[in-house]
Design a protein around this nucleic acid. Structure first.
Length: 417
RNA sequence: CGGGGUGUCGUAUACCGGUAGUACGCAUGCUUUGGGAGCAUGUAGACUGGGUUCAAUUCCCAGCACCCCGACCA
């Protein structure tokens, strides 16, 4: 895409109502726009990153047998009343509204109830199990306090997967498979080294759940890490008993602030019992389905990447989530030959399927570089009088600043390698 | 939900009981072109409502919005 046609613009100053690093940088670079507290729109660059993250998650969910669907935001109270979760004292973040005829409806905060109810129509036999269903769907949560930029908002897309299994044993196999898939996801988005599978409270569902926590100062959670054994425990369940069960001592843990980027937990038969999700086993006996649920918030993940990997100049996107693979920067000035060369380079990249943001604007080098640093595309390719005279292009790595000069004929090979 | 704070051009800010200045941006022109250039001209602003006052953007009250701390986070 030509940058001269991109409708967003970078800014030098962050808006004064944003304190978090992720929102400041994402707004300054033109990725997102704030609509109100805890509600953000995604602009062209932001949507590209967001979609890249979704693509990674989708690939990994499909790889473990997930089947994608989309459920509705509008929710009938009926199923929620059956599980007791329509009550504002049980779930205090409902956005509730009404139809014209007065019937109450809610905007979905999560989807255990409607999906369990839906599955009763399709799960009858042991032959129908196991089954794994997921979606990327907008959740609404009326948080009393939105904070941390795009990391805790009132309207956000969530990847929520639900597993339906015949038994605890069968459930557990998938649970571990999903944990492994999550690990892959966090590696692919560039947070692998900072992210720990963490013992956490199971809330009202079970004794424990597993959170995926990324070490980050902006995080809301505190976790304790046993680096030698790669064990992490959320503060909420960090005690003598838990630690002892794991065969270690409390002295061996370091404390750290962390962001919960994913959470997987066993649901048991809590929902299947209430909503009558049963299957017939080989003897014809009705058995409740064993469930699990698995969540990741792509936007929170995006915010965490910015928090963890950015530097004083701006954002640093890992390769797989970057809005473009290459930032082609033309330093043509009035030089028509350089401009032609840059145009030609852009065509070359495009023809070879390499997505590039082409800074074809008539600006000074300093401003272009500053913008490029802020936007954070992994590789910057510079076409200038200098590079033309040398018969190469200059490629700068955003993350470490290293510079490589690549002969024109080798560029595609270099970028695809 | 408890506590605290802030609302001034598009953005960041200054000053002020007598109707607002700067920088960035944007527009036009000229000069400039490898790290946010220079000059000139122009553009654009006091959250809303009430009160006090001769006079309110400024002081007071309310509302709204936003921010921070805490609580909550299935």
């Amino acid at each position: 895409m030509k940058q001269s046609q991109l409708f967003t613009r970078t800014r030098k100053d962050a808006p004064k109502d944003e304190v978090s690093k992720n929102a400041q940088l994402l707004i300054r670079a033109g990725y997102i726009h704030k609509e109100m507290a805890g509600v953000y729109s995604y602009l062209p660059l932001g949507l590209r990153v967001f979609n890249n993250i979704i693509k990674i998650i989708r690939e990994e969910m499909n790889a473990i047998g997930g089947q994608e669907i989309t459920m509705t935001t509008l929710q009938s109270p009926k199923v929620w009343e059956q599980t007791g979760r329509w009550n504002d004292e049980v779930i205090d973040v409902w956005f509730k509204t009404a139809l014209k005829d007065g019937a109450e409806v809610g905007l979905g905060v999560t989807h255990e109830e409607p999906l369990t109810a839906l599955m009763t129509e399709y799960i009858q036999s042991h032959k129908d199990l196991p089954v794994y269903v997921y979606q990327f769907q907008t959740k609404f949560r009326n948080e009393t306090r939105a904070k941390s930029g795009i990391m805790r908002t009132r309207e956000f897309v969530m990847k929520d997967m639900y597993s339906f299994s015949k038994s605890q044993e069968e459930f557990k196999i998938f649970y571990e498979k999903c944990a492994a898939a999550y690990k892959t996801i966090f590696e692919r988005v560039g947070l692998g080294n900072h992210t720990f599978r963490t013992f956490a409270s199971g809330g009202s569902f079970s004794k424990f759940s597993d959170e995926f926590q990324t070490i980050c100062e902006a995080g809301e959670d505190t976790i304790y890490i046993h680096r030698a054994k790669n064990i992490a425990i959320n503060k909420e369940v960090y005690n003598e008993e838990t630690v002892k069960d794991l065969g270690v001592t409390m002295e061996e843990f370091d404390q750290a602030k962390a962001v919960e980027v994913g959470n997987i937990f066993p649901l048991g038969t809590r929902f299947s019992d209430v909503l009558d999700l049963n299957y017939k086993d080989e003897t014809g006996k009705a058995i409740p389905v064993v469930m699990g649920s698995y969540g990741i918030g792509p936007a929170r993940l995006m915010g965490t990447i910015v928090e963890v990997l950015s530097d004083e100049k701006g954002i640093v996107w890992p390769k797989e989530v970057a809005p473009f693979a290459v930032h082609l920067v033309s330093l043509a000035g009035d030089n028509v030959d350089v401009k032609k060369e840059a145009d030609r380079m852009y065509e070359l990249l495009t023809e070879n399927g390499i997505e590039a943001l082409y800074d074809d604007r008539d600006l000074r080098a300093g401003e272009k570089f500053a913008d490029s640093d802020l936007i954070g595309i992994p590789l910057r390719m510079i076409v200038s009088e200098k590079s033309m005279a040398a018969g190469n292009v200059e490629i700068i790595n955003r993350a470490d600043g290293s510079v490589q000069r690549i002969a024109e004929s080798k560029i595609i090979e270099f970028l695809k390698g």
